[in-house]
Design a protein around this nucleic acid. Sequence first.
DNA 1: GCGGATCAC
DNA 2: TATGGTGATCCGC
Length: 668
Amino acid sequence: MSSNDHGLHPTTQATDSLVRRLAGPSTNKAGLAKDQTEINRIIAEASKGSKFYENEKRKDKDLTERIERIIKYRDEVIKGVDLHQVEQGVDKLIAQLEAQRDLSQVIVHVDMDAFFASVELLDNPDLASKPFGVGGGVMSTASYEARKYGVRSGMPTFIAKKLCPDLIVLKSHYDRYSEMSNKVMAVCRRYDPNMSVVGCDEGYLNITSYCEEHGMTPDECVQDMRQKIHEETALTASAGIAPNKMLAKICSDRNKPNGQFKLDFEARAIKAFMRDLSIRKVPGVGRVNERLLESIGIKTCGDIYAQRGILSLMDKQFGLMFLLQSYLGIASNVVEPWQREEKKSIGAERTFNTLSDTAKIHAKLEEVAAELSKDMTEGQWTGKTITLKYKLNTFQVCTRAKSLDKWLSGRAEELFTLGKELLKPELPLTLRLIGLRVTKLKDLKAEAESKARGIKRFFNAAPPSPSKKRRIERTEHDEQEELPLSQDGFATSMPGYEDEIEAEHIAEEDVIEGDDIRSHRPPGSLKSKPKSSSAVPDNHAGPFGSARPPNSDRGSKRKPSSSASVSAATHKPSGAEDVIDSPEALLECPICSKMLEMDNQGLNEHIDFCLSKQAIKEAQASSLKPDSGSSQHGTKPLRRGLKPQSRGKSKDKVGGHGEGLLRFRKQD
DNA sequence: GCGGATCAC
DNA sequence: TATGGTGATCCGC
């Protein structure tokens, strides 16, 4: 709102980043062709002037400013630092991650080719080789022919038609997709009954035992599976074969459509594979994080290594561990079916033509309340927190939440009333969307079943989801037996490690109350945090939020802000140098809170060990849960300012880009 | 605990 | 003319 709009010069040219942003999130998916720049130009042109466009412009500006702050901060934080020494610290971390790489499991990611479009093609062969898409206002899927024109999922239909005037737009047939999806998954389950289904057209399998039992190579097995899928559904699938989920997913894209790609199960080959891979291909790195990383010179996973020093110093902004794992191609290899107890929220929302009239808005709210009520009832869920969501006609999104001291009844009327209460202080509004979501869920079905069995011990407690504890325990257990990583190879040789295992068990018990088992649980949280003046991982206020000017913590304490800045801890043991410098002092590990009697170097080694052990556990095990977890390959996401988030993979309903708008419920 | 962001499908 | 719906996680308050 500064210099423009005065008409002196025509609308300012859309910046590069804005044009790319407008092109949509799935720009780098498969099947594009032609000149992407030209396509982007057409999209930007078609969008120009719309409310949507203005909102994207605003977000782009915000991001640009955020990047400027990050760069400024980087330039500050780097002053007076021996980057080489920092890098050496990171290198030790890398070596420890590498040492724990697990190549023993054969993981497959299966991905149906243009699923909705392919199903439509089955039912209408005349569409063959024609550009067509499935969807209503926005495209759910485009045929490969249409993709050549730049048509993508998530793209509004009117723009798709500008790109491809001959585009045929079909309505969706959800029941049909669901039916075919079930057939496909049934085939896949023969190869791994424990497979993890993602959405309606994807899944992860662990075919290690299948290959063994049938004397097949992974390639043969997957070839066979894809052929069976084709025989039984006349649909084609692509697949990736690799030692973990992240790699398998990336590989499934490699020879799409109707192809498969197997990565060599060797660290060398994997690292070579990652080196030139665009960071954007890493699940969890979206458009925003791509730009943030690009701003510090990271475009490929190989660049992560080159920038490891900076990344260590800016762990808070970028999440060092996540990126190192991406660089190494290390991720979770745990494949499990989704379970009800993982569900954390249930909601409904609806977009409509802009409304300002409160009565009409209430009518929309009542509709979503009814929808949500239905889903809660049928799914047998209740919850304690209700969140109203609305989107202004400017596309800005707001949420308003309220936590109750009782469980919701789930009745439509109740949800509607609560929604109106949350909405009231906001009025008047001009909206294009309204929605309701319930969190802090309780699984009424599990409760009923348990009670029926006379097992009611934990369901009597309210909010803390009872299932969590069990999962944690099982998680730990699985980890011990199936991941060679937790073995004590280097444990015994590590100072101060003796009772580490025990300490962790205590931690698990204590943590059941924790709100997120997946969250980075600093071992320090076991008990009381170390309050000693020493190297407590203090959050040095980031560049944002104003808190503290970056330089203010320069001279004295540049401490590791988290797991990442190991390096810093190593070469510059944080604040209390006076203490640490005295050999033989009794020191408290900032990570595990253990009191250690050792010298400076000993402490540093212990800290390194502590951090890496924790990091490694998270890297390979934490995601331990099927995949809803942090990032789908299960590693700790880029934390803080920059972090990919997990993906929800609820199966009750699936939506989204890809084969997205599908709303199907999974039987059984 | 709440609200905003980001991401995946 | 016109840009979706469901769910998860993380950060900073």
